[in-house]
Amino acid sequence: MAYPRLIGALCATTMLVAPAFAQDWPQRQITMVVPFSAGGPTDTVARMVAERMSADLGQQIIIENIGGAGGTLGAGNVAKADADGYTVLLHHIGMATSATLYRNLAYDTLDAFEYVGLVTEVPMVVVSRKDFEPKDFKEFISYVKDNADNLTLANAGIGSASHLCGMMLMSALDVQLVTVPYKGTGPAMTDLLGGQTDLMCDQTTNTTQQIKGGTIKAYAVTTPERLELFADLPTAMESGLDGFDVSIWHGIYTPKGTPAEVNERLSKALQAALADEGVIKAMADLGTAPSPAGDATPEALKTKLETEIARWKPVIEAAGVYAD
């Protein structure tokens, strides 16, 4: 196999010359890898910010969707890409959880990437079928504790946002519900609408319209602060569920060895994009908001990734589910 060696040699040469052209970067179009299929929520976030970042950088950013294996294929691809600043990765919380969920990752999550910054943190809502008995979240907690054996909790598959949030919910309530996995949010939501399952916890991107339409019932949000969108919904934490703080955060990464100047420049472009009226409006429609400028930095993302890996590791290990 001369082929990987050839790539290795090429990578080595690009790393040697990398600092020399950091000042002139970017010279050509940049590829932003989204490790999920086109049209999904992560792809949507990527396309929103990429368009504004392109304007700031003066070079087109094109989106390449490399879906598969919970985002680890796309991330693995970027980990192996040239560290010249022309390949970047936009990934969500799965970047941190896959470090535990997948026991044979092709890359070392903490050692294969450089950081650009956080993009947005999408809050999640605990929802139920529309005729679920409890009136508010207080009642909900005691009801679920009493009826744990008879309740079903839907999720969109292992490693999905709803799966993570569901694990957090069960661990916060200290109950074991009957988990019903689906292939994606669509079918999971359909069965919740039809009353085939009882509970779910999912991102506002997927739940907002259904809650507003009255087809499902919302009980609590999973962020430390209440949301402007659902001002009357309590947070899980204020209702006594300590540490129940889940959001689907998105970050932008580059391959290890990408010059610091390039990452800084990308981070500036990201901050500019996040301050854009159009982006703020588009994110608000999805029930989320851009990360503050202070979080759209390499340091903030690095800290976030490290703490999140540490936080999810015990939760996933306790649940005993792995995706590999």
């Binding site: 050839l6 090429l10 690009t14 590829t31 094109i62 989106i63 390449e64 040239d82």
Partner: peptide
């Protein structure tokens, strides 16, 4: 269609 393939690769 602007597919995200590089026309000429690093090799």
């Amino acid at each position: 269609l602007g597919l995200p393939f590089r026309r000429f690769g690093p090799w």
